[in-house]
Amino acid sequence: MKLPTDPADNLAALIRCPSVTPAEGGALTALEAMLAPLGFAVERPVFSQDATADVENLYARRSAEGPHLMFAGHTDVVPVGDEKAWTHPPFAAEIANGVMYGRGAVDMKGGIACFVAALARHVEATGGPKGSVSLLITGDEEGPAVNGSVKLLEWATARGERWDACLLGEPTNPDRLGDMIKVGRRGSLSGAVTVLGRQGHVAYPHLADNPMRGLMTLLDALHGPPFDAGTERFQPTNLEVTSVDVGNTAANVIPARATAAFNVRFNDTWSAESLQAEIHNRLDAASRRRKYRKGRTEPVEFELSWRESPSHVFLTHDEKLVGTLSRSVEAVTGVRPALSTSGGTSDARFIKDYCPVVEFGLVGRTMHMVDERVALTDLEMLTEIYRRFIGNWFGEQ
């Protein structure tokens, strides 16, 4: 049986599956077909939760005596947007001038395609790694991430699975292959503050209490002073207001309430709990200020709420994992990759609780964009990086 050693062929098969979250779209079936000749035992559990779509996932293991390496990723993709704006159909995997086009090309069907090709080449050359390899692939990374990796990890652990390390194939490189390995992630905390005022006519402001004035006072306190100056491995903590809403369509009515939603990306100066306490203290102190509320003596009346399940900050210290991947990247690209904690969240935030995890994949410049695409030369280089990493991590090279 032919082994899936060509990353371009593997990627084309995956792109042609319209697996927009939460649809499986045939992508897991295509991946299972690639893994079959490599000796993987494949299971595809479906997870459910109230008010969310059912999601199919894949867990595959090739067992041998020795350490256990996990490769993690997702086959679900974001919607294509305006399909007419694409120069090549988003699910056709067309190649033009050495570049493959398609939704998921870099985020992150390309990473999966390369890892499968790398493992296939390793099996073809050596018979296989001196240990176990598993693939933990979700269909819910681009969605709410409720019925995906978090439940798949719990499911696998309950069945006795244990891992020594994980490579997550997200697109980590900003400009060229070899730029960056992600060795940690900032935490993410989302909340909303609502100011309660008193509705009235704009011509008679003394009879009302405009909640926007109080909200501006509170938002001032959230934006300054800075939460911190950053740490050795992390950027400074950053808070961004993401929406402001008063629910008011009338231009001559002072609204009764105003709500601002915000998100904080925080470093290892904070835990989610200590940051929540800091934000509440800032708002409580600011509620007694009168900068925008001349003549008011009572404090701003506000409510603070938090979204469930904040993402916690983490940093991977596993030298074998980080060092082996760094050396593999440099050997193929000639570039010493930066070890970074920048960017948004990923499923690494779940995996870190089970084993050390690092992230390395393709160049992410076109992810989520019209004409998402990847150079065929990058697919070959990433496959070679992964092949070297597999051999070196198992101590075979």
Rank of each mutant, 00 (worst) to 15 (best):
A36G: 05
L58E: 02
L304A: 08
A256E: 14
F227D: 05
A125C: 08
P171E: 06
F40R: 05
G184D: 07
I351D: 10
G111P: 01
I279V: 15
N248K: 08
M367K: 08
L167A: 04
L58S: 07
C114H: 01
E32R: 15
G200I: 08
R61P: 00
D164Q: 09
E56I: 11
E372A: 03
T324W: 08
A64D: 10
L283K: 02
E396R: 02
M216T: 11
C166M: 03
K320S: 11
T341F: 08
V20R: 01
F71N: 03
N97M: 02
V322K: 03
F227Q: 10
V335I: 15
E303D: 12
T52F: 14
P225V: 12
E273I: 09
E142D: 12
T138H: 03
R176V: 13
E303A: 14
L283A: 00
G214V: 07
S287V: 08
R282A: 14
R387E: 14
P89D: 12
M70G: 10
H68K: 06
D9L: 14
V183N: 07
M70P: 00
R265F: 10
A258H: 01
L135C: 07
G131H: 07
I15L: 02
L168F: 14
L215Q: 08
L38F: 02
V183K: 03
E43Y: 01
Y292C: 13
A165N: 06
A229C: 03
Y292K: 13
I137F: 06
A221Q: 03
E330M: 06
R388M: 04
Y386H: 13
T249S: 13
S48W: 04
L379Y: 03
F360S: 12
F71E: 07
T157P: 00
M212G: 02
F115M: 15
D175C: 11
M212Q: 14
P4R: 00
G334D: 10
E161Q: 12
T52P: 00
H74Y: 11
P90E: 00
A256V: 02
A51P: 05
Q49W: 00
D164S: 09
T217M: 11
L3Q: 09
G391H: 02
T157K: 15
L177V: 03
F302H: 08
K109H: 12
I254R: 05
V264C: 09
A338G: 15
D220G: 09
G81T: 07
R44K: 15
L135A: 06
A92Y: 10
V363E: 01
D179N: 14
M70N: 06
G169W: 00
F394V: 03
E141K: 06
G395H: 12
P171W: 01
I254E: 05
L339V: 04
V357W: 02
N147I: 10
R213S: 07
T366H: 13
A33W: 02
F394Q: 07
G139I: 05
V195M: 05
A338S: 13
F227G: 02
V374T: 10
P310G: 13
A113R: 11
R159Y: 04
N267R: 12
E330H: 06
A158G: 11
E170P: 07
R44T: 15
G25E: 00
L196C: 05
G81Y: 12
F314D: 01
